[in-house]
Amino acid sequence: MMYQPAATATLERMILDHLNTAVMLFDQTLRLTYLNPAAEMLFEISARHLIGQPAAALLPCPDTNVEQRLIAALAARHPFTEREVNICVADGRTKTVNCTVLPLAPSDDGGALLVELNQVDRQLRITREEHLLSQHQATQTLLRGLAHEIKNPLGGLRGAAQLLEQELPDASLREYTRIIIDEADRLQALMNRMLGPNRLPSCRAVNIHDVLEHVRSLMLAESPAGPAIVRNYDPSIPDCRADPDRLIQAFLNLVRNAAAAAGVQGQIELKTRVLRQFTLGNQRHRLVLQAQVHDNGAGIPADIRDQIFFPMVSGRVGGSGLGLPIAQELISQHGGLIECDSCPGDTTFTVYLPLESAHGARTESLGHRR
């Protein structure tokens, strides 16, 4: 059977409409003439609101003028690909895509450009999460080994200092043995803080907003002058099974850091949402709690952003560098994860916690992750 031109066009349109890849068509004036349903889903807006829009408004091109780049591609009939480009969607959020531009054969109206957009931020997020989890596990393994090697000599030093203190005839000399004992205790306490609690979490049904309100009240008592703490809660979030004391400690560490960054004139936002069919590490969860601590402070210095969850790394003068590693460990004990995005004036720590029990989560293959 031979397809007639109209039938062929209908078939091509049907194929494009059923692709999972976002496809857009621009005419020679670089105005959008067609986009498939996958592109509508990507931009989170209907076709009737996008048709006729200029390419420059939809396709930011790094380090160059979008229109000039597309006109050159159309004239030279030369395709190109830009990787990890950020596009804006309807509510102002950004998504990361690989953008391929393919000039089509000249026609009566001067040709056209076919643009293919493959969303990659999901894959990038999965890779980043796996890196964070492996980084955290490696750090904890190192710390446990280091703590074992330090605690034994510390115990011996402290015991010897106590025996020596008892034998010293001059009370003034005992000041030196007391220094040894106090410093040994300080180092012991430091190692315990770095390792976190040595007992399993005592889990029960916990309302995340009760936890955040408790943290908020503590911060208002500690810093009544500011920063302002605003709430953006989703009241429909179900209870999660967690140890409330550990969640309070984790969020308190995050909010204290945010308060130090924002200053008394700044603002902190506590935000909660529910994510569906969300993957943490290599496990897919039906429901995941997303709790964010956002501040408008100066941001995390670029040279330490990749190391902020390592112990003893701090961007603040006088900071211990233990608050974030401890928070990550406490959330990790609940099967969750903390991520950070930061730039000057905009820093967000995002806590993910599964809302179903561990046995309810199912492991999924790499090909079916979010």
Results as ranks from 00 to 15, higher is better:
Gln4Tyr: 09
Pro5Gly: 02
Ala6Glu: 15
Ala7His: 07
Ala9Ser: 11
Leu11His: 13
Glu12Asp: 02
Arg13Gly: 09
Ile15Pro: 05
Leu16Phe: 10
His18Asp: 03
Thr21Trp: 00
Met24Asp: 02
Asp27Leu: 04
Gln28Met: 01
Leu30Lys: 03
Arg31Tyr: 08
Pro37Trp: 05
Pro37Val: 02
Ala39Pro: 11
Ala39Thr: 02
Met41Arg: 14
Arg48His: 11
Gly52Ala: 04
Ala55Cys: 04
Ala57Phe: 02
Pro62His: 09
Val66Glu: 11
Arg69Asn: 08
Leu70Phe: 14
Ile71Asp: 08
Ala72Pro: 00
Leu74Asn: 07
Pro79Thr: 10
Phe80Thr: 04
Thr81Met: 09
Thr81Gly: 03
Arg93Gln: 12
Arg93Lys: 14
Lys95His: 11
Val97Gln: 10
Cys99Met: 15
Val101Pro: 01
Leu102Asn: 12
Ala105Cys: 00
Pro106Cys: 01
Pro106Thr: 04
Ser107Glu: 09
Gly110Ile: 09
Gly111Asn: 04
Glu116Pro: 00
Leu117Ile: 07
Leu117Val: 10
Asp121Ile: 10
Asp121Pro: 04
Asp121Thr: 05
Ile126Gln: 13
Arg128Leu: 12
His131Gln: 12
Leu133Asp: 03
Gln135Tyr: 01
His136Tyr: 02
Thr139Glu: 06
Gln140Asp: 05
Thr141Tyr: 07
Leu142Trp: 14
Leu143Thr: 12
Leu146Asn: 06
Pro153Tyr: 14
Gly156Val: 10
Gly159Asn: 13
Glu165Lys: 10
Glu167Thr: 07
Asp170Arg: 09
Arg174Met: 02
Arg178Ile: 00
Arg178Cys: 00
Ile179Ser: 01
Ile180Ala: 08
Asp182Arg: 15
Glu183Lys: 12
Ala184Lys: 02
Asp185Gly: 03
Leu187Gln: 13
Gln188Phe: 10
Ala189Cys: 06
Gly196Lys: 01
Pro197Gln: 09
Cys203Thr: 15
Val206Gln: 06
Glu213Lys: 11
Glu213Asp: 15
Val215Phe: 02
Leu220Asn: 12
Glu222Lys: 14
Ser223Lys: 06
Pro224Gly: 07
Ala225Glu: 15
Ile229Asp: 09
Ile229Ser: 06
Tyr233Phe: 15
Pro238Gln: 09
Cys240Lys: 00
Ala242Ile: 03
Asp245Met: 12
Arg246Phe: 03
Ile248Ser: 05
Gln249Ile: 00
Phe251Ser: 06
Ala260His: 11
Gly263Lys: 07
Val264Arg: 14
Gly266Ile: 05
Gln267Lys: 14
Ile268His: 05
Glu269Asp: 03
Thr272Gln: 13
Arg273Val: 06
Val274Asn: 13
Gln277Glu: 15
Asn282Gln: 12
Leu287Arg: 15
Val288Arg: 03
Ala291Val: 06
His294Glu: 07
Asn296Gly: 10
Ala298Arg: 12
Asp303Lys: 05
Arg305Lys: 13
Asp306Gln: 12
Phe310Cys: 08
Pro311Lys: 11
Ser314Phe: 11
Val317Gly: 07
Val317Gln: 11
Gly318Ser: 07
Gly323Lys: 08
Ile326His: 06
Leu330Ser: 10
Leu330Lys: 08
His334Ser: 05
Leu337Lys: 01
Ile338Asp: 02
Cys340Gln: 13
Cys340His: 00
Asp341Thr: 15
Asp346Lys: 07
Asp346Met: 04
Thr347Gly: 09
Val351Ser: 06
Leu353Asp: 03
Leu355Asp: 09
Glu356Asn: 11
His359Trp: 08
Ala361Glu: 04
Arg369Ile: 14
